[in-house]
């Protein structure tokens, strides 16, 4: 056995962005610095129960300023936003909010899962992340419901308004112009 089998994970200065945690705090994860790494968040996580996703690890890395590592991590997208960690955190850190803030930052940097881009495109096109399909249109008719629901699906004017809002907030640009590759 040679020394080369032992890989030491060394954090270089250049990996650390000291402003990262400030950004999280400003965006609403205001108590994140009080984390004591007790692991309550990981222990109640339904995704963590069956994967290597550890909420505590993400929070620790965020506190260390390992911005790139956190934002590029697929684990960030394993949170089902069940909010159990937020409820149970003994430091009352809004853990779920912190994850959502980091997801926003990841998307802004172009890290978006292809399925999520697809759902966003549906929202942009139809006003619904899960739009009506033929089978359900038929089921609505059979059930005696309005065949096309009274949503943006049945109002071009409403859809245009929704699309204009998404244009103004920059959502359309965000989805259409960020790199396709991402993660």
């Amino acid at each position: 056995m040679t020394d080369s089998t032992i890989v030491r994970d060394i954090i270089d200065d250049e990996d650390i962005d000291p402003k990262f945690v400030d950004t999280l705090v400003e965006a609403g994860a205001d108590r994140i610095r009080t984390c004591i790494q007790c692991g309550t968040c990981s222990s109640v996580c339904p995704s963590g129960r069956r994967t290597a996703f550890r909420t505590r690890e993400i929070i620790r890395k965020a506190l260390l300023g390992l911005k790139e590592e956190v934002l590029t991590s697929p684990d960030l997208w394993l949170c089902a936003t069940c909010l159990t960690c937020l409820e149970r955190c003994p430091r009352q850190i809004k853990v779920t909010d912190a994850i959502i803030i980091m997801r926003n930052m990841a998307v802004e940097e172009g890290f978006m899962l292809p399925q999520h881009r697809k759902a966003s495109r549906k929202l942009i096109k139809t006003g619904h992340a899960v739009p009506l399909d033929d089978a359900n249109r038929e089921m609505r008719r059979e059930l005696g419901l309005q065949e096309i629901p009274p949503t943006t699906h049945s109002s071009g004017e409403a859809l245009e308004q929704v699309q204009e809002i998404m244009r103004r907030t920059g959502f359309i640009d965000l989805i259409e112009s960020t790199e396709e590759s991402g993660q």
Binding site: A80, T81, I100, I101, R103, N104, V107, M112, H116, A119, S120, L123, A129, I165, M166, T169, G170, F171, L174, I175
Partner: peptide, 12 residues
């Protein structure tokens, strides 16, 4: 949707 669209762009 709070888990997806809010995760992508909170202001939207």
């Amino acid at each position: 949707a709070p888990g997806v669209i809010r995760s992508f762009d909170e202001p939207t």
